[in-house]
Simulated assay, not measured.
Amino acid sequence: MLGDVLGTLLIHGDREEPEKRTAPAVWDANRLRIATEAAGVALWSWNVDTDAIYMDERAHGLWGVPLGPVTFEDLSAHIHPEDLDRVRAAFASTREVLGAYEIDFRILHGKEVRWVSARGRGDDQGIVGRLMFGVFLDVTERKMAEEAREMIAGEMGHRVKNLFTIASALTVISERSTSTTKEMSKDLRLRLAALDRAHDLVRPVLGDPKRAAQLGDLLAVLLAPYAGGGLDGERVRIDVPELLVGEASATTLALVVHELATNSIKYGSLSTATGTLDVSCVGDDHGAAVTWRERGGPEVSPPNGHAGFGSRLMTNAVAGQLGGTIVFEWLSEGVTVVLRTSRARLGG
């Protein structure tokens, strides 16, 4: 039905004299179907009097609803709850819209979330009888690419802010642990050089073979800039077994360690002269658990509200790249963080 109507519109919509045509009228219903299938376009029509919505097979497959007429209420059961009110308001106002409109929203197809773009024309433009026409496009890949770009941009901005925070905090630590400007300058240069070495250690180099590092060596290099006089015995203590960390996992682990260290020098145990940090690891042939334990800093209170970008970044990185989990325990004497991952993923 829908293909026939649209095919008729495209064939007879041009009322120019035959001699003025620049191309033959080849767009019958069958050829229209070939074009829409090639473009991944799903078709719909809406009866403005009965509210019945007729869709082609592609649209039914996209929405995951049985063949046959449906209503907006039938489709709304498949719209993501966070988008439903926005889509409902847009649907109610489509006939008042001047010209073309489009709205992007998420739908739930079983356990899968898809992004759909609904497009049509308002102000009763193109109405045939009492039917309005439009299309659905599956824009999931485009939306995922946009979200990935936004995540990368957000991560870059977040890391730049962290670098300024780290530089400022290292300056304070150096000032606290030295007595002259010359000593402070030297100490700060050493700390910044250690930070640079940590970056080089985990930065992938094109053309190099896959590298692996001992977990203890990696943590020592990553945490050296924040130690108040040395590792293993003073402010920062590391006690981990021999465990290889692959290049890809090392990058993720470095991101998490830098985020935790940044938070610590801003709010936690490394923000005071007497605070300490203990990093340990236990594991077997199957899994490993790295524990980050802060003590001696300001009294800790659990964060209020939604998790910040840094927390989401760590959670996503650990889950996505290490296939593990990261859990925070907000004890008054200091935060404890436990990162769990499979041994195979850590060494991959």
Rank of each mutant, 00 (worst) to 15 (best):
L190I: 10
L190S: 14
R191K: 15
L192Q: 07
A194I: 03
L195E: 00
D196G: 12
R197W: 00
H199A: 01
L201Q: 00
V202R: 01
P204K: 03
V205H: 07
L206W: 11
G207R: 08
G207I: 03
P209S: 12
P209F: 05
K210R: 15
R211K: 15
L215H: 00
L215P: 00
G216M: 01
D217K: 00
L219K: 06
L219N: 03
A220S: 15
A220P: 07
L222N: 05
L222V: 05
L223F: 14
L223C: 14
Y226K: 09
Y226L: 12
A227L: 01
G228N: 11
L231I: 14
L231C: 05
L231H: 04
L231V: 06
D232H: 15
E234N: 13
R235Y: 09
R235V: 09
V236T: 11
R237G: 09
R237I: 10
I238S: 09
D239E: 13
E242F: 11
E242M: 11
L243H: 10
L243S: 12
L244P: 12
V245P: 06
V245D: 04
G246P: 11
G246I: 10
G246F: 09
E247R: 07
A248H: 14
A248K: 15
S249N: 03
A250Q: 08
A250F: 08
T251Y: 04
T252L: 02
L253P: 04
L253D: 05
L255V: 08
L255C: 04
V256H: 05
V256K: 05
H258W: 08
A261S: 14
A261N: 05
N263V: 08
N263T: 12
S264R: 02
I265P: 01
K266L: 12
Y267L: 12
Y267C: 08
G268C: 07
L270H: 00
L270F: 00
T272M: 03
T272H: 02
A273Y: 11
A273I: 13
T274P: 00
T274Q: 12
D278G: 07
D278M: 11
S280I: 09
S280G: 15
V282M: 01
V282Y: 01
G283C: 10
D284F: 05
D284P: 04
D284E: 04
D284S: 07
D285Y: 10
D285K: 13
H286V: 12
A289T: 15
V290A: 04
W292T: 03
W292G: 02
W292M: 02
W292H: 02
E294F: 04
E294Y: 05
E294H: 05
R295M: 05
R295V: 06
R295H: 08
G296Q: 02
G297K: 03
P298Q: 09
V300E: 03
V300A: 02
V300L: 02
S301Q: 13
P302S: 06
P302C: 02
P302A: 15
P303N: 10
P303Y: 12
P303V: 10
G305I: 04
H306S: 14
A307G: 08
A307E: 15
G308C: 06
G310H: 09
G310M: 10
G310C: 10
S311L: 01
S311H: 01
R312P: 03
R312C: 08
